[in-house]
Design a protein around this nucleic acid. Structure first.
Lengths: 357, 357
DNA sequence: TTGAAAGCGTTACCAC
DNA sequence: GTGGTAACGCTTTCAA
């Protein structure tokens, strides 16, 4: 690698001490405007960019933050959240001279170790806590490590700074929409119960239906994947009698009786909803004529599938930007009030229609 | 952040000089086995992990490499390559104590700047060059910067170390498969012509057809997206007369004459192929009865769509691992022969069938 | 306002 | 085999 310009050369060229260069370039007082200008000129001439290595050691900062993606390698492949989220992070980190260190680990315990090593090696000044699970072990870990962290859509009572986007208002809108369309038999395809966001969406769905004086109906636990959604559809709509494994709410409908099939299904994310629709189609159950389907996320793909997917649109990019803002504030030791993103919005498209009579 | 153990404390506890601690812990000679053991014990007791910051400055290494994703924020969202690729990178980087710095930039010129700043700030020891375009400006840039780099699936004659996975053998297999099924009218939905991998796949497709004594047929340039694939289908199969914008090969078929429609279509990636199939379905053109469709990548989703997608399976995880291995070798100044991954394999599923008569 | 010097936590060199 | 010490490139403190 080519030799790089250091602060020493800038100082030599400007005819001053390196401490003055440092002060001048960091816009700190103690340098006359005249010498400051001269120093900046010299730095420009030489194309000087301070070495983050030297800065790190001296400033006791890594100027980097970490994101550990824990789940199978193919999350990034199927989860549309990350791309935009990371874009949002970058939009804040980059202008402030921070870099994002991305780690991927599959096993959960390995993930914890990643955080530990990130902290031990002083690689990062803080981390993002994503995809939080109930009693997430990362929380006590970062607390114990004294590692600044911000949570993304955590549960209520989360002890660290967090950015949140409310689900429930949008889900209420969805329920109102479905009720207005005359639906009476509902079902929910949830995410794994250990994820707090999966739980929250399920609870919001149930609460909204109860508030609308409707039976919350069946809940089938899926896994946020296309295939999971398809399997849920087979369970809820298929004749296979596989309905046995559906978790049935209090006083709910039976899924294996065709006449009692749900006519409106809310899937915990778009990908599962799209898989659900595909399987419904395969089973000869028409969407939206026989069953209305709604998703959650607002991914691009939902625009193109037929029928286009009714969904709740979230703001991953904004969430990322806010998360980065919060984390940098926490790193600076500033007070960090939680950030609240405008709630997920109902986007009605073609996959929801009046209930069949 | 809690105070961390440094080498000084380890030295004190073991009753030796810090230089001995360094030698002992890095398994260098010049320390008796006895003291080495004592030092390692002391380090363990204290939970010592060397600070990357100190090491960086001293060793003149960042112990980090960079990946700049250039394209719209939603790549990670729709491109299945990245998740597995990054997983592959990590599998090599992490054990060697290297971290991955991920940057995202949309505009191409901004991307170049990202590389420049990464290098100028000495943030990374090397970078990956992905999604190479024809005459990619990043190549002269890294050469000029003296920044180690490895290319992923570059064009022939690429001047830097590279990892490659051959497309053409698999594409020949695909063509043979289609020819054996009796197809005579072909079409190709390509990626943007500026990408070297898009060009290579197009060329391989054309060459294989010519070698099989068949007419290469029409090429429609799409953009690797679901929607792009759908639009291509509308063009190739639709009655809309939109066929006008199709780029027609020498002596090729006319797309707007239904009887001359292609019966076998190769899409440059799976996502586009899936969009293509969806649009075909919408137009009342049955897959695979009326038209056979094949993709490229081997993404998970292709397993679940109906008909399941015939495709060429690639090995992004392996490509990532090899790319990381090469880059670290380059950083170490070792000779770096290109890495060749076993070629993409034909995976026949339900979307290809005998040509309609 | 300016400059000298002391860290920051390692590694590497060189005496002992 | 072992222990000092310079060097890495910067920030910060303290004299001048």
């Amino acid at each position: 690698m080519a030799e790089r310009v250091t602060i020493v050369e800038v100082a030599a060229r400007a005819g001053v001490a390196i401490s003055s260069v440092s002060s001048a370039l960091n816009d700190r007082p103690g340098v006359s405007e005249q010498t400051r200008a001269r120093i900046k000129q010299a730095a420009d001439d030489l194309g000087f960019v301070p070495s983050v290595r030297g800065r790190s050691l001296s400033a006791k900062r890594a100027f980097a933050v970490g994101l550990v993606v824990h789940r199978d390698p193919f999350v990034l492949e199927s989860d549309p959240f990350f791309g935009s989220f990371i874009g949002g992070l970058e939009s804040v980190l980059d202008p402030r001279g921070y870099a994002l260190i991305l780690q991927m680990g599959s096993a959960a315990d390995e993930t914890l170790d990643r955080y530990r090593r990130l902290a031990a090696g002083r690689r990062v000044d803080g981390v993002f806590l994503n995809e939080l699970v109930v009693d997430d072990p990362r929380v006590p870990l970062v607390q114990q490590l004294g590692l600044p962290a911000v949570g993304v859509n955590p549960a209520a009572g989360f002890p660290l700074p967090a950015v949140r986007q409310d689900d429930s208002a949008g889900i209420r809108e969805l329920v109102d929409h479905l009720v207005a369309l005359g639906h009476r038999r509902f079902a929910h395809v949830s995410g794994p119960d250990r994820f707090v966001h999966a739980r929250r969406r399920s609870a919001a769905w149930r609460d909204a239906l109860v508030a609308a004086d409707r039976d919350p109906g069946v809940v089938v636990e899926a896994d946020f994947t296309y295939d999971g959604g398809a399997r849920a559809a087979a369970q809820l709509l298929g004749g296979g009698g596989a309905g046995g494994s559906a978790r049935v709410g209090d006083g709910s409908v039976r899924v294996d009786d065709p006449s009692e099939r749900p006519t409106a299904v809310f899937c915990a994310n778009d990908l599962a909803a799209i898989g659900f629709m595909a399987e419904a189609d395969r089973l000869g159950v028409r969407v939206p004529d026989d069953v209305s389907v709604a998703g959650f996320d607002g991914i691009e793909l939902g625009t193109y599938v037929r029928p286009a997917l009714t969904t709740l649109t979230t703001a991953p990019r904004l969430i990322g930007a806010e998360a980065a803002r919060l984390l940098l504030a926490a790193v600076d030791g500033d007070p960090v009030p939680d950030a609240e993103i405008d709630h997920a919005r109902l986007l009605v498209r073609a996959s929801t229609a009046p209930a069949p009579r």
